[in-house]
Amino acid sequence: MTTASGNAATLQGSAKPPSWLHRNRIKLAPWFFLLPGLIFFSVYVIIPIFQSIWISLFAWDGLGAKEWVGMANYVELIDDDRFYTSLKNNLWWLVLYMLAVPAGLAIALFLNQTVTGIRFYKSMFFFPFVISQVVVGLIFSWFYNPSFGVVGIVWEFFGATPPSILGDEDLVTFGIIFAGLWPQIAYCMILYLTGLNNVSPDQVEAGRLDNAKGWKMLWYIILPQLKPATFIAIVVTVIGALRSFDLIAIMTQGGPYGSSNVLAYFMFETALSEYGFRYGYGSAIATVLFVIMLVYISFFLWRMYQDEKG
């Protein structure tokens, strides 16, 4: 490449040495290509992060003047029961949402066979992921309704009084997580189905010769080959759990009395909903959520780096 640029210079027949831009064009080219992306990423992601952290040090209703309060928003947060409820629910989401990974694997293994119409069955199993989360939320809130929902009818069939799942502070989060698992399992399933297509038949064959069957076959032969799929499934499930906003907004709006809140919804409610507009306090919640996510993101990046290093 350097000779090419040298040729270009001689062709121009100029005695002047090539310009700085010209000399460094190879090094600069990738940055020019990256520039549009970098600009948008900083304007819409990086800069707002620092703005939020800055706003979290003020009391501000978004209309009047900002009032500097220092760490007061964080002090209030430490003393706020709703914050701990949300944090606890976030942890439940992270833990229970992980069930989507083994459940998705199980369905994928079950569907990984050649029967007439298997494509139809596969697409039916994938269906819930295609529906909007809003619809999933609506369907499940009717489903859970004790007076006309399926849950109520089943309970009454056994002669029990149906619980009001979305109206009970102890059950509500689990009810919403269960609704969220429905599409999430489908997502993990599709990841595993594509993974299973790439499982090498030679290794399965070799395993058979060595008398591997059932669980042993799955654990030692199939699963190691599905490792990339498992990694992606875990990543998207964690992201799904942390983004668990739409279902809560549709099904309960964080209720009853805030007991199904998660940090993301709590932040929205504080900063942007009808009775909120405390931008400073909302930003403080956002900052805490960001710190929690940072732990996960750093692990993710470190892991990617390790993989790429070889």
């Binding site: 859970y144 309704n145 004790p146 979305l166 309960t252 209720g255 009853p256």
Partner: peptide, 9 residues
Amino acid sequence: GYFIENHAT
């Protein structure tokens, strides 16, 4: 119990 049950939903 004069209010309807499940009013929170």
